[in-house]
Amino acid sequence: MHDQPLLDVSNLTVNLLTAKSAVRPVDGVSYSVRQGECLAIVGESGSGKTVMNFAPLGLMPTGVTTMLSGSVKLEGRELIGLPEAEIQKLRGKSVGFIFQDPMSALNPVRRIGRQIAEMAELHLNMTSKAAEARALELVKLVGISDPAARLRQYPHELSGGLRQRIVIAIALAGEPKLLIADEPTTALDVTVQAQILRLLKDVQRRLNMAMVLITHDMGVVAGAADNIVVMYAARAAECGPVDKVLVSPRHPYTRGLINAIPRREDPIGLEFRGLPGIPPTLGAPIKGCALAPRCELAVPACGNSRPPLVRSDDSAVLVACPVVNQGKAAA
C-alpha cells in the first residue's frame, strides 16, 4: 500500500463546454503524489493547474459541462466516471481544499465555529458538542491565539492571514489524506505568506498527509514541495524533484520562469526579464509544441507534433521539449 501513490493521475484531459464555447484547459497530464509528499503544480494563470485538480472532484462552477478522460485514482479508486454523490462523500472527508482568497472563501454571516464544526459533524459523525470541541482543537492547531473567542466571531472580524488559517482548519477538520491548496498564499500579505506556508508544511508533515500545492510562486515551491510539475498551456512541460528542476531547469519554459524571478543583485530600474509573447488561447487545438512561438530554442520541427514527456539524463526528471530531448526515446 505504501509504495502505491495516494493520488495517481494519468493522461488526464479536461474539456469544458459552455453554451458558447469549448476549451481544453487540461490536455493529457500525468502526475502522482504519495502519502506525506508535497507536489507543487506551477504555471501561469490560465495554464489549467486549478481545473486539473478541481474538475475530477466535481468542484466546477455550475453551467459548465465538464468532460473528463484519462484516469484519476485516489487510494486506488478511480474517480473518473464515479457518480457525483460518491465524489461528494470524498470531498472534505478524503480530500481537504484550501482556496486562494480567504477574504471570500468563508461565509460572511455564519460564525467561524459553526463553519469548522459542521465538518466534524458531517464527516466524523460527531455530536454538535463534540464537534465544537474539535473545532477548538483545530483552531489551536493552526496557531490562532485566543481560540475560544475566535470561534464565536464572524469572518469579517478577522484579518486575511487569520481567515486563511481558518480555511486551513476547515480543510483539516475531516481528517483528509490529501490536501489540495490552490494558491494558498497568493492573496496574502508578503509577511503573512511565509507564516501560512510554514503552517501548511508543518501540518502536512505532522498529519502525514499528501499535499498538492498549486502556485505560481517559485519561492513557495522551493520552500515547501518535494516534486514539481510545470504546466504550460494545459500540458506538463517538465516534472521531477524540486531540487533538481529548480536548480537545473531543462525545459526552456521552466528556465524562462526561473530566470524571470528578480534577483537581489539586479540594478534598480532594470526591466523584468519576462517571457516574450503571451500564452496561447486554449479554444483552438495546438498542433506542435505550445511554447514554440515564444521559445528561444524553437526550430521549425517544433510545430510538427506535440512533444512527449521524455526522461532526461537525470532519470527522475521528465521534459517535453523536442530540442532538449533530441536523440532520446519517449518515456
Partner: peptide
C-alpha cells in the same frame, strides 16, 4: 459566491448549501 465553493469542498450537498450557506446570506 466563492464561499459556496468552499461549502461544496466540505462535502455539503446542494440542499444543505442552499439552506445553511445561501439562505442566511
Amino acid at each position: 459566491s466563492p464561499f459556496v465553493l468552499t461549502a461544496k469542498s466540505k462535502g455539503l450537498g446542494r440542499t444543505a448549501i442552499l439552506f445553511r450557506e445561501a439562505l442566511p446570506n
